[in-house]
Computed example of a mutant assay.
Amino acid sequence: MRFIQILSIFFASLFASFGLFGINRVHAASVNEKSLNIRYKDIKLVGHLYVPEHHEEQMPAVILSHGLGGDYTQMEPYAKALAKQGYLTYAYDFAGGSSNSASTGRNTRQMSVFTEEEDLTAVLNNIRQRSDVDASKVSLVGASQGGLVSALTASQHQREVHSLGLLYPAFSAGDEAQSRYSSINEVPQSVNLYGTEVGRPYYRRLLKTNVMNLATRYNGPTIIIHGSADRIVPVRYARQAAQKFPHAQLEIIKGANHDFPGSAEGKSIRMLDRFFEQHQ
């Protein structure tokens, strides 16, 4: 009887690894990278596509969005790691997302959370139309301000977004804006925000919007990964957001600051991978 139990466990594990119980992910030894530019209106978004070397005809996809003052390289470790697990991934520069952005059509003083939401919506539409992508399984991952933008986009496009991953998301943006200025007339023409020069357009809607409520309406699977020692976006915002999303899990990385330096990045990558595997 003991032998039969062991044999049953062995075959169950073997069948699961080959997808016979619904798990069917490609594990790639290497990833092919190529440039992909996406155009809409007068905007050109410059990005990088990561595709597993041996992949299925149609793959699940993950779109990765960087934070304020960053670019696609902030999300590249996540994009490559997820591509090795069988996902087509795309990381790009927001138009006006930083002074180093390769995307064109908008500068940092014209950018806002809501113009970045427009950028991500254009990317989402483009990636879903690809012949090598399963349009029913396109997920969003965003870091810091890119996390807030991803949450806003998912909340507005419920049916198009399969699942949502948020890394130290900037749900504090609305409160921070409203604590600085009581009206748009008080906002200078140029503001240094964490090293990035933003303008009045950045604050126009933030000053009159409950961005936390607006960005937590997505009802699909959601993971929020936050550092307990985050000095830019206090962890209480992640806890509040996790309570507002209908289906969210919250992972706190003890001692981690904003941007997940050091070992925190590796931990967050593993958490994301497990989350996507569970919600394939």
Rank of each mutant, 00 (worst) to 15 (best):
F3M: 09
I4N: 12
Q5Y: 13
S8C: 12
G19R: 10
G19D: 11
L20V: 11
F21W: 13
G22E: 10
N24R: 15
Y40W: 11
Y40D: 06
K41T: 13
V46L: 07
V51T: 12
P52D: 08
E53I: 12
H66P: 10
G69T: 04
A81R: 03
A83Q: 01
T89G: 01
G97E: 02
S99V: 10
S103W: 08
T108V: 05
Q110T: 03
M111Y: 07
S112K: 00
S112F: 02
A122C: 04
R128H: 00
V138H: 07
G142E: 10
G142C: 12
S150P: 00
L152E: 05
L152G: 02
A154Y: 02
E160R: 12
L164R: 08
Y181A: 04
S182F: 05
S182I: 03
V187G: 01
E197A: 14
R200K: 15
Y203R: 04
N213R: 10
I223N: 06
I224W: 05
G227H: 06
V235G: 06
V235S: 14
Q240P: 04
Q243S: 13
P246M: 01
H247Y: 10
L250V: 01
E251P: 03
I252W: 05
I253W: 07
K254L: 09
H258A: 09
D259N: 12
S263E: 14
A264K: 07
I269C: 03
R270I: 05
F275V: 01
F276K: 03
Q278H: 07
H279C: 03
